[in-house]
């Protein structure tokens, strides 16, 4: 399943999707960035409530397919702009992290 399809089927909002054809093969939830880098797998969708600029570097280096901001968390405009340049997909979910993960799980 691609990031575009996941966004649509789960009813998430697209914050910025510069690489929507990217495949999603798993899912990881976590807010401690080193835990994410230690545990998330490449091509996972990463669910987090963290919204500072460092999430973009973590997503790039851990090679996740997208960031899903849960709990209705929003990001600043400069992060959206940087995400576009770095080709990091960011989706947003109004649901808590657990329910967001359940929705992802139903699709992949």
């Amino acid at each position: 399943m691609t990031v575009n399809e996941l966004c649509q089927k789960c009813g998430f909002s697209a914050v910025v999707i510069p690489d929507g054809d990217r495949e999603v093969t798993g899912c990881y939830t976590g807010d401690l960035l080193s835990w994410v880098m230690g545990r998330a797998k490449g091509d996972d969708a990463w669910i987090t409530i963290m919204s500072n600029i460092n999430i973009l570097a973590v997503a790039t280096l851990a090679d996740v397919s997208c960031i899903i901001l849960s709990e209705g968390v929003t990001v600043d405009g400069d992060i959206i702009e940087t995400a576009k340049q770095k080709e990091v997909n960011i989706l947003s979910s109004s649901l808590p992290s657990y329910e967001t993960a359940v929705k992802v799980s139903e699709q992949i």
Partner: peptide
């Protein structure tokens, strides 16, 4: 508060 400082940095480097 930025999500770092979990005490996983050096262990991840080794991992």
């Amino acid at each position: 508060s930025l999500g770092f400082g979990a005490g996983m940095g050096l262990p991840n480097m080794k991992r």
